[in-house]
Design a protein around this nucleic acid. Structure first.
Lengths: 126, 126
DNA sequence: GTAGACCTTAGAGTTAAGTGTAAGTCAAAC
DNA sequence: GTTTGACTTACACTTAACTCTAAGGTCTAC
């Protein structure tokens, strides 16, 4: 039977607007329709949406996601290219993790510094 | 003497446009001027810009950075509030790191899956 | 004394990624 | 049989974060 757009919005955490927007933009491949022309999502769609969210949330611009998805439509011949794009993105994610770790430390130091200033101010008031 | 906006743009990696925009928006506190009205940055400014970039690049919206910076102007009394904001953001960063690590794994699996499909296709062609 | 490199402001334009609205179709419930 | 609710499209609007342009001031080098 398939899922309605409402159900998929709930399951994916994306809004109905966003889902339609993604399909319009080619971020999501064309979704099949029921006899009334209503979108009819299936489990594969949900799986793909989950991958799309993962790419998006790790900073891939939707234009790039679109490119990746459009390769899927070309079948097996584009597997190496798809894999290459993912590998490139994986490098990106790893860099970001390192970057975030460095900045987590920096913020940590700043917090400690502020705490020490507060201690100092307290001591001066006594 | 202080640094010109051009120098600071080079040192910080932000564009001159962005630096002016940040000052206009209150993301950056008002920068002192020379006798011609030209901005005259100092090392403290550079340090603050580095913190701002760190907050921004770890996902803090500039509206929030602005709030944080405006507290700095209030002196010692706002230290606890500033510290609270940083701690909140630190939690955010840590969550993001975990999230990214999970998705790095997911992408890794996907890559391995694609590689296995490629192997399979190659085998079928022989 | 003027050309060029630097700076200034005000305000308009851009881009990405949605978000919302209007007008309409369709099926089920009352 | 009409109201309600979920869906459709086309298109306009929004928001964040810049980015650019126009018009002009000032200093330095020739």
């Amino acid at each position: 039977m398939g899922y309605s757009i409402k159900t998929i919005a709930q399951k994916s955490g994306l809004s109905q607007y966003t889902l339609r927007y993604y399909e319009r933009e080619g971020v999501l491949p064309e979704v099949s329709r029921d006899e009334n022309g209503n979108r009819c999502f299936h489990d594969e769609d949900l799986e793909l949406i989950s991958l799309i969210c993962c790419l998006k949330d790790t900073g891939m611009p939707i234009a790039d996601i679109k490119q990746f998805i459009s390769l899927s439509k070309e079948g097996h011949s584009s597997l190496p290219e798809q894999r290459r794009l993912l590998q490139e993105h994986k490098v990106h994610i790893d860099e970001k993790i390192k970057f975030f770790q460095t900045f987590a430390e920096k913020v940590e130091h700043k917090i400690a510094y502020f705490a020490s200033l507060e201690e100092q101010a307290k001591a001066e008031n006594n």
